[in-house]
Design a protein around this nucleic acid. Sequence first.
RNA 1: GGGGGUGUAGCUCAGUUGGUUAGAGCGAUCGCCUGUCACGCGAUAGGUCGAGGGUUCGAGUCCCUUCACUCCCGCCA
Length: 594
Amino acid sequence: MNKYRTHNCTELTKKNKNQEIILSGWINKKRDHGNLLFIDLRDNYGVTQCVIDKSNKFFNELEKIQLESVIKINGKVVERSKETINSDLKTGEIEVNIISFETLGHCMELPMPVFSDQDYAEEIRLKYRFLDLRRKKIHENIILRSKVISFIRNKMSELGFLEFQTPILTSSSPEGARDFLVPSRLNPGKFYALPQAPQQFKQLVMVSGFDKYFQIAPCFRDEDARADRSPGEFYQLDLEMSFVEQEDVFNVVEKLMISLFKNFSSKKLLHEKFPRISYEKVMLKYGTDKPDLRNPLLINDITNIFTREDVKFDIFKKLVKSGSKVRSIVTKKTKNKPRSFFDNIDKWAKELGASGLAYFTIEKDQKISAKGPVGKFFSEDSLMDIMKITNAEVGDSLFLACEKLKEVEKISSLARDKIAYELNLIDESKFAFCWIVDYPMFEKDEVTNKVKFSHNPFSMPQGDIKNIDFKKPLNIKAYQYDIVCNGVELSSGAIRNHIPELMYKLFSIVGYDKNQVDEKFGGMINALSYGAPPHGGIAPGIDRIVMLLAGEKNIREVTMFPMNQNAQDLMMNAPSKVSEEQLKELNLDLKKKK
RNA sequence: GGGGGUGUAGCUCAGUUGGUUAGAGCGAUCGCCUGUCACGCGAUAGGUCGAGGGUUCGAGUCCCUUCACUCCCGCCA
């Protein structure tokens, strides 16, 4: 028999009545009646109420013991009387009469309460993460994360994928995010980089003939944090498949996501077949490439309306003439909304740095007319056209934004979220997945005006490979795709370019000659030159998936030991200084701070 | 790198127009209490009001600088 416990803290029921048992766990809560003491004993599995009274020689010692100390209790299971049953506890029909106890791990005075639903400052939670993790909500989140990862592993194996590990110490790559660098002792002056993703390795796995690969892969990017982005490291379900087209990848991921989300959440999926939306369309209709499809509002382009003679809205007309676009959002049946509703959204837009949102409501007496501060500028005819383009009806309202393309996309996208939130249009009980497809291969850098890769340089361009018009690179689309759920970008993926000649050609467009490509991606190109299969894949973010399933808005709520916003681990005190000897071994000198 | 928010007891927070000795709940310590499950009752301890400077007869409160945490922008193929 195990010396610490015969049962865990959720197991005992009426069936164990009169048994002598041993429990070990943390003291969750004490209720001291002076001559009678209740102790809620907690472990990973649950809580059991234990009782002791003054007649027991251990009473005084137990009365004084700190909360969150770890103790072992020898006791007898007794059935509770009807009035004292606690239906909130799985073990609420019984309690344990303490015979003796032993302290296994003493707890000092707590810097933060463990038994409490209160929110605490992030700083103290991270410093005492081991205490924070004892708390119910986050404890359950971490267990969920473990179960999700197991489920994914099983499902991927079931689907015929093999799990491999790829190197953690690898080489820095010139594209993408900032690298974490690790100095090499044996090669002075040279550095490893931690992988931003196992991108090149997984392609090499395909070239090596393994057909289907996956990995719960740690990824390292030295970029600034956000609520949904850990600084430093995060995990992807990295996967890659040979001899596939885009739809084959989609099929695998849809199967996985549907079973995963059905299994771990009671929320319903809005679409069982995830909609495919082209990049071009998503930017027009949603203003972003990570649209929240739970939000029914759509954006429409009505720029042309402002070239008409019978529209007198001169501010917009002038802006349109100089290249600005006008985008609108229709809100249904909002004609009775108070003026303040519209003005507040206009004010909100201005606070974000936009020039504001014009608005009017469509009404009908004898004629169709627009009501609102700018309504008078629109003729009946122009309103009919607007209604045609936007599917607006009498009684609906329109918000109008007029900015340069990038800005109008941005503000209309934010306004879409804001207005839906104000009108309570988001159905929180749903998951809405979609694929964003047909990304452009290249884009123009706004600062340098040079053509650059818009996403992954290793993606396969669309169309007949032999007849691609490289003179118009901005027209080339790629087999590049994103999967999005509830406005959260879960991952990017692509069908890869496995043809070295085509790779050189595409790199030449962004200004790399053959030698430079060989130097930067020699390993990759070389491998592709020895018989590479067509292949493609994707890498959904594990942390974000768990966030969605747990209903959390912050990635640290589903990460066991996260770093803070400044990429510091407050518990382990990382990063930290190293000794002179260590620096010397690595051939490093530190610049003296001023 | 830039913008917003926050910072008062171990924890969560209140603190009016600048005005006497900075408060509450939880926690801690001590005492009372045999059926609680957020047990109850009483007492005690606990404060560089994030730090530094300034204005003022007087600063938790006003001004300046700075630090920490957090959210956002940039960044994240």
